[in-house]
Design a protein around this nucleic acid. Structure first.
Lengths: 149, 149
DNA sequence: CTTGACTCTGTAGTAGACTACAGGATATAG
DNA sequence: CTATATCCTGTAGTCTACTACAGAGTCAAG
């Protein structure tokens, strides 16, 4: 079976060598087997995982979230229940991200395709596209005393 | 016209007070008018902008990108050409993000809905969902042959 | 006018995610 | 066998995006 050095893996995934080692330290990818001299020897599987990390990062997932997603894929044949629950949470999150991106998309289409230049700014609402979407439920402070004016 | 203090704005947007001031320093929102005593007085427009920032951040945009997006909305009636070009770039980016999220979504659906437990791991590919998506055009070295069976 | 909650500026510290060496070992072409 | 390109560990530095004070001023209620 063909294995690769860390440099080849880095080139294939578009990551830096130091970054690959960093991901290993952080537990995002399992430590690969080593050669007699101590060199890391990667398989194609590692490439897949690292590409996943790169993509997921570009989508705004934190390394902690990505670690979780990767564990989902690793455990997919194991404890169905907990895994499913986690996957369903992630699914909901992803759905709302897609929805928000599509609102943003619509607004941008509006800007590029329409907006003749005579509309008075309040009608070209990139802002409005995302202004009221319920994406991330932040640390709830809402149930404070509403000094409603 | 009704204006709000920074604390009220923070509560409305789910951001911290310090964060709101930070965004102002960073040029994400324009400095609001001040009261006689120097207090910032926000309008509903600020709320909209700050909510946009919060949402866009949750989608993985950096503050620099968000600044750009906000400038798009601010200039929407101005120099159509450069603005449109920028908007079109952002649009393409958003499209590929949506596509990647949808691949990830499909993989998660697969995990939650299918995956009876007897499949041998290579068939529940959350990894494969993102393994080869073209999200960020990194220093190109690709042209790799997919030896995948 | 006093009080207490709130805000101001400015500086400094933190967490996450890299990124850059230093100093030394290893692999491989010739 | 000898370059030289690549790899190793370990530590430290950087960048982004906050977050936390300190010390002082402001606002609204009573």
């Amino acid at each position: 079976m063909k294995t690769m050095t860390i440099g080849q893996v880095a080139r294939h995934t578009g990551l830096g060598i130091e970054t690959v080692r960093y991901y290993e330290r952080e537990g995002l990818i399992p430590p690969p087997p080593r050669s007699a001299g101590g060199y890391r020897r990667y398989s194609a599987d590692s490439i897949r995982q690292l590409s996943f990390v790169r993509q997921a990062k570009a989508l705004g997932f934190s390394l902690a979230e990505i670690r979780e997603l990767l564990s989902l894929s690793a455990d997919s044949q194991a404890s169905s229940h907990a895994v499913k629950q986690l996957a369903e949470q992630r699914l909901a999150d992803i759905d709302s991200r897609i929805a928000a991106l599509e609102r943003m998309r619509a607004a941008l289409v509006h800007v590029t395709g329409q907006c003749p230049g005579d509309v008075p700014r309040a009608e070209c609402p990139i802002l409005a596209a995302l202004a009221d979407g319920p994406a991330a439920p932040l640390p709830d402070k809402a149930t404070q005393q509403t000094k409603t004016p």
